[in-house]
C-alpha cells in the first residue's frame, strides 16, 4: 500500500487550484513539484464545486508562484480559491 505520508511539511493557511480535468491536475502536480512547491492532491472541497474531482492544495503564501508556473505552462485552470 502506498504511504499516507508522501506529502508532508505543509502548515497552512491553504489555497487550492482547480482544473477542468484530472489529467490537468496531474500535469500541474508534476510542474509544481519540479519547482519545489509543497502541495497535496485532495478531493475538491464540496462548497467549491459539485464535481467529484481532485484539486491541488498548497500554502497560500505560494499563490503568485503557483499562478506563474501554471500560466507559463499554458495549462488552463478553473480557478484558485482560499480555503
Amino acid at each position: 500500500m502506498l504511504s499516507k505520508k508522501n506529502e508532508v511539511g505543509q502548515s497552512g493557511p491553504f489555497s487550492v487550484v482547480l482544473f477542468h480535468s484530472i489529467s490537468g491536475a496531474l500535469r500541474a502536480e508534476k510542474l509544481l513539484k519540479a519547482e519545489s512547491v509543497s502541495l497535496k492532491m485532495i478531493p475538491v472541497p464540496r462548497h467549491l464545486s459539485s464535481d467529484c474531482g481532485i484539486c491541488i492544495r498548497f500554502e497560500r503564501a505560494d499563490e503568485l508562484k503557483v499562478e506563474g508556473i501554471l500560466g507559463r505552462s499554458k495549462l488552463e485552470i478553473q480557478g484558485i480559491h482560499q480555503i
Partner: peptide
C-alpha cells in the same frame, strides 16, 4: 481520477 483517495490519485 475518479475518487480522490490516494490510490486513485496514484493510478491517475
Amino acid at each position: 481520477g475518479r475518487s480522490g483517495h490516494r490510490l486513485s490519485i496514484e493510478a491517475g
